[in-house]
Design a protein around this nucleic acid. Sequence first.
DNA 1: GCGCGACTTTGGTAGATTTTGGTAGATATT
DNA 2: AATATCTACCAAAATCTACCAAAGTCGCGC
Lengths: 253, 253
Amino acid sequence: MQAEARQKHIENYLHKVEFASLEELATQVGASTSTVRRDVSMLEANGLVRRTHGGARLINPPSDEFTFSSRDTHQLSEKEAIGKACAELIRPNETVIMDAGTTVYHAARYLEPKSPQIITNSLPIANLFAAANKVELIVSGGVIYPRLGVLVGPLAVEAFSKIHADVAIMSAGGITLEGITNSHGLLIEIQHAMMRAAQRVIFCFDSSKLGRKSVSFLCDLEGIDTIVTDSGAPSDLVDALRNKGLEVIVAAP
Amino acid sequence: MQAEARQKHIENYLHKVEFASLEELATQVGASTSTVRRDVSMLEANGLVRRTHGGARLINPPSDEFTFSSRDTHQLSEKEAIGKACAELIRPNETVIMDAGTTVYHAARYLEPKSPQIITNSLPIANLFAAANKVELIVSGGVIYPRLGVLVGPLAVEAFSKIHADVAIMSAGGITLEGITNSHGLLIEIQHAMMRAAQRVIFCFDSSKLGRKSVSFLCDLEGIDTIVTDSGAPSDLVDALRNKGLEVIVAAP
DNA sequence: GCGCGACTTTGGTAGATTTTGGTAGATATT
DNA sequence: AATATCTACCAAAATCTACCAAAGTCGCGC
């Protein structure tokens, strides 16, 4: 069988089964595991398929319904480290506002032992604590923004305008010395309200976001207290931020 | 089985049973408990699942009662039937308020094709539509009431006081000729607000709730338009309700 | 069409790496 | 206190990477 035909065949087969071992694929196309391994690598380079130990799986299986990138292992360990470090900044029984975003989500997962009161507009975070009885969870109202599972709109802004919290744990699309930017304009007004409502403001950025600018300006560096990032952070920017009087925490992996 | 396939399998299995012991999972996927333990840890790192002593459970089960009834298929099919019949009462593009409760949840599952605008204080229902882009979903704010996944409190009441909807799909603990009662006093004020905000009010009761009284009085029969129940409903009560001018729909199984 | 060298693809192999299943001691649950 | 489960580690098994030689393919002149 020709190389391209083989790869097409592999792709089709994966569409049916979602996962397959290399041996399985090898017998399917009548080639050796070495060859199939190479084929799968090529398909992966084209972004169609992902290799796993011992096999391959589709990138976008139809059954993968969670838009909130649950399977996105991209920089997972860094985000975990950030989340853990961030959770350590929270004192027991504090009232915590939590922004939407995967990095904040990971911080949320370490927060339960502090028995905090949590206020959020993120559906994934709400789900996380829905069954936890050590945590009092307040959900802002709003219209759901499908791709992110965030509640937005006037109801959400209003909810945050009315309350008061000890800390806000936030994230955004990018940070430079000029300020913080975000890619979703809809969220900006809500994030402003969150920051106004909180005494302390903590921002979580995985290192890929340091030095990056997104489309919409969110705020300058004045209003924020602490930044948590991972060890991939460029040290010159970290130093510059510290010189500006910000507390910068670099989470060990 | 491949690692990722195994994890997917575990995830799916947990979607069915909500909770499973490690041994159970190990036999399910044909691997050792060590391996399953590691898998579950990874799934937890991705935020899909939570580890517990001796097993794992889903982070966001649809709801306690719902999962129970997924084991009891008899009960399930009745609620399904009610849900289906109830969804048929909704016209395309209507604005629908949805109460919390398992029966209403089942109705929600059939609502997507009508591309409705949905307003709810139920976290399970919110999750159901979080990824659906035919549905505009508004979530009321509020404090989460852990056992039920409902948002309660002034924020929730206020949200429903401000809006206007075509229909409200409700449920409660029991109905008699004297009126409707509910077991969760906290919900009553919210349900009042929901009913006030809606032009038409539909109540879903599985037949076990007909003729039953719960602790707290919710409302009399004046303000409601339609009742949907299943074929197990006692016909004398159905007739009596119809004589009172209510539309009563008995869903075929 | 045939022969021939250059190039590509294939299947296989050795050593490195990852994953797996199991175990001992620590920890949690009853 | 008794039991079950967890963590942290280890050795065995599976798989991966990187390489090699054989087979296949192509381009070209004749």
